[in-house]
């Protein structure tokens, strides 16, 4: 029973972080058809921004989180303004943007390296102590990750569903020309989407580094997991990404407990491949959802 509780709690914590970063990726993909290889670097950047605010500048804990969000948002915007904007009309956008965003990832990673060095730091944004559920210790930080991510995701979902900006984002994703005919400036939407994606990545970077360590390359692995989640949910399907994040995190943690840590990711990938052979457009996509 305790093992079960442990698996569920670890799975939820992991799932919450995966979901947060997967939603950002999914939004960006859905609106721009852009595989953002800089997503991992944005995640890392968030972790370090919080470190800089709290440890180096001595600001209170939550200023770290807010600082990370602000940095993620601004860098997301900058990526749009400096690079993506000029490539949108390129017929090979989908391939070329992979290279461009990867180039940006290298640049961001090196800027971090220059500013902070390669030495791994501890993320200061971490709540102390915890509580017991049965015999299982549940650190408050993990609890915060679950609750905080859920709150942020719900806020994002609310914005996307109910606001004027959110409707424009969805409309652009579903029919770009149609949205233009409604007076939507797709450039504005793309900038907003990259800013939101950057912000979510930065927060998930703070949370992730709070239970591991800060290092300039820490973003790659979670980015890859987020990619897988986005694929299994169906690219651009934001709600599906949410479910997929939790299901896959629980699966990964279970495999790690039963077969050993090293088989978590391979088992995950195998599951995803089988799932996609079964449903090639993503498990959470309506089978005949047509994009225009």
């Amino acid at each position: 029973m305790d093992t079960f509780t442990q698996i569920v709690l670890s799975g939820l914590t992991l799932g919450a972080m995966y979901a947060l970063s997967a939603i950002g990726l999914s939004l960006v993909w859905g609106s721009l058809n852009m595989l953002n290889m800089a997503h991992g670097a944005l995640l890392t950047l968030g972790g370090y921004a919080s470190f800089a605010a709290i440890t180096q500048m001595g600001l209170p804990l939550f200023a770290g989180l807010l600082g990370a969000m602000a940095v993620g948002l601004l860098v997301g915007l900058a990526i749009y303004a400096a690079v993506v904007r000029f490539m949108l009309t390129d017929p090979a956008f989908e391939t070329n943007i992979i290279v461009a965003s990867f180039g940006l990832a290298i640049i961001l990673e090196n800027v971090i390296l220059k500013l902070f060095g390669a030495y791994p730091f501890t993320q200061p944004f971490a709540l102390k102590s915890g509580l017991y559920i049965g015999a299982v210790h549940m650190p408050y930080q993990n609890l915060f990750i679950i609750v905080g991510s859920a709150a942020l995701m719900m806020a994002t979902a609310w914005v996307i569903t109910n606001t004027r900006m959110g409707r424009a984002i969805r409309a652009t994703a579903q029919n770009r020309e149609g949205a233009e005919l409604m007076g939507v400036s797709v450039n504005l939407v793309f900038a907003q989407v990259l800013a939101i994606g950057g912000m979510l990545a930065a927060v998930s970077g703070v949370m992730l580094s709070s239970i591991t360590t800060l290092a300039p390359t820490m973003g790659y692995d979670p980015m890859l997991k987020a990619f897988i989640i986005v694929v299994i949910a169906g690219l651009g399907n934001t709600m599906g990404a949410l479910y997929a994040a939790f299901i896959l995190a629980l699966f990964e943690v279970s495999v790690q407990y039963m077969l050993g840590v090293r088989f978590g990711f391979p088992a995950l990938l195998l599951l995803v491949i089988i799932a996609l052979i079964w449903r090639p457009d993503g498990v959470f996509m309506k089978p005949k959802a047509q994009r225009q």
Binding site: R164, R167, A168, R170, A171, Q174, N175, E177, G178, A179, L181, M182, G183, V184, A289, Q290, R291, Q292
Partner: peptide, 25 residues
Amino acid sequence: VHIPQGDMLFPDMTVRDNLLMGAYL
């Protein structure tokens, strides 16, 4: 206001949300 050929609706949005997009500006 352009009501285009092929309608160019937003297929995964509700009728109400599609209409509200018309009043985006």
